[in-house]
């Protein structure tokens, strides 16, 4: 197990390095950040001074070398706009996004798993047709449009929930989160549901496919021949088997929830990472964009590793390479 993890960490470092190279060269092709930083009517000397201050007058490979040596020391550069370390800005915003993504994941599982099992057990029922129709909508309707509709219905017309923002937060067990206040929860419901909709549809489809496959297996027939109740068969024989692929996919999907919460965060003005990076792209705030992209890559690498480890725990047949012989 340890050898397996070590090898994966080494691979991750290589991937991160290659990604940094790609991200850095791509971003140098897009626009001139100095245009955004100074008043267009400034004197040429002034513009040159700003360019020198940010080190943008040097060739790209020098800039990259500076970035790389800084990154190895844990410094991803300062934001052009805020004048503060990019990493610190991200760390500040991360809890809001993590909270949003986690809530969305929990909603997706608690709603999607039972509906998917129901649909898988009754492939021809009316309930199944409604669930599967709904999941097609969930997958095909754009998130931003649904988000706007939700705001119009639940906030503007019905007035039940706040339109945007994160609301009050409270500290509990050393974690600051809006999950611990009523106002915070109210603010969270709409964006979390919006972010979860696509994943609910995905979980339903995965669960249904898994359920149909597992229910046709001989061990389910043998379990029925033992006289087990349907409840016991679902809990002890169906669920552990369908959870293996679902957890694999959801582990990776958790990364996309965090990485692509950008749309939802923009619509609901949720002060998370997504909003930070959208603003940074608009303002050509290179250090933030680079730091964000590297963060997302690192996130996926870690999630992949965690999923592999969980997989080995869930499925006794899987033995990670490098363990034993």
């Amino acid at each position: 197990m340890l050898a397996f993890i070590l090898r994966r960490v080494m691979q991750s470092v290589v991937v991160l390095f290659v990604m940094s190279l790609v991200v850095f060269s791509m971003i140098n092709l897009v626009g001139d950040p100095v245009d955004m930083l100074v008043n267009p009517e400034s004197l040429p000397e002034e513009i040159d001074r700003v360019r020198r201050d940010f080190g943008l007058d040097q060739p790209a490979y020098v800039q990259y070398w500076k970035f790389l040596t800084g990154a190895l020391a844990g410094d991803l550069g300062n934001s052009f706009i805020f004048g503060r370390p990019a990493l610190a800005l991200m760390v500040e915003r991360f809890p809001a996004t993590l909270e949003l993504a986690t809530s969305a994941l929990i909603i997706a599982i608690t709603v999607g798993l039972p509906l998917g099992i129901y649909a898988g057990l009754r492939p021809n029922g009316w309930g199944t047709r409604i669930i599967m129709g709904g999941s097609v909508l969930g997958i095909s309707v754009p998130t931003f449009w649904l988000g706007l509709m939700m705001i119009i219905v639940f906030s503007v017309i019905l007035g039940w929930l706040p339109v945007s923002g994160r609301g009050e937060t409270a500290v509990f067990l050393g974690i600051e989160s809006s999950l611990f206040t009523l106002d915070g929860l109210k603010h969270l419901i709409l964006p979390a549901t919006n972010l979860a909709l696509f994943k609910i549809a995905m979980v339903i489809r995965l669960t249904r496919a898994g359920t149909e496959e597992v229910m046709a297996q001989d061990y389910i027939k043998f379990a029925r021949a033992k006289g087990l109740s349907s409840k016991r068969i679902v809990r002890a024989h169906l669920l552990p088997n369908i959870l293996i692929p679902i957890i694999t996919v959801l582990g990776i999907e958790f990364g996309t929830l965090i990485a692509f919460a950008t749309v939802t965060e923009s619509i609901f003005a949720w002060p998370g990472l997504g909003k930070l990076v959208i603003d940074a792209i608009v303002n050509l705030d290179r250090p933030i964009v680079v730091a964000y992209l590297l963060f997302v890559v690192a996130l996926f690498l870690v999630l992949n590793l965690v999923v592999d480890i969980i997989y080995a725990v869930l499925d006794p047949r899987v033995r990670l390479q490098g363990e034993g012989g």
């Binding site: 061990y219 043998f222 379990a223 033992k226 006289g227 087990l228 002890a236 552990p240 499925d315």
Partner: peptide
């Protein structure tokens, strides 16, 4: 009645047992 008064054994022993549950669990539940 099933598994109690009438029991059944299937053809393929490699697929009659749930791969992710221990043998003991699968027998005790019966």
């Amino acid at each position: 009645l099933r598994g109690n008064r009438i029991a059944m054994i299937f053809q393929d022993p490699t697929t009659s047992l749930n791969p992710v549950q221990r043998i003991g669990v699968q027998m005790i539940e019966a």
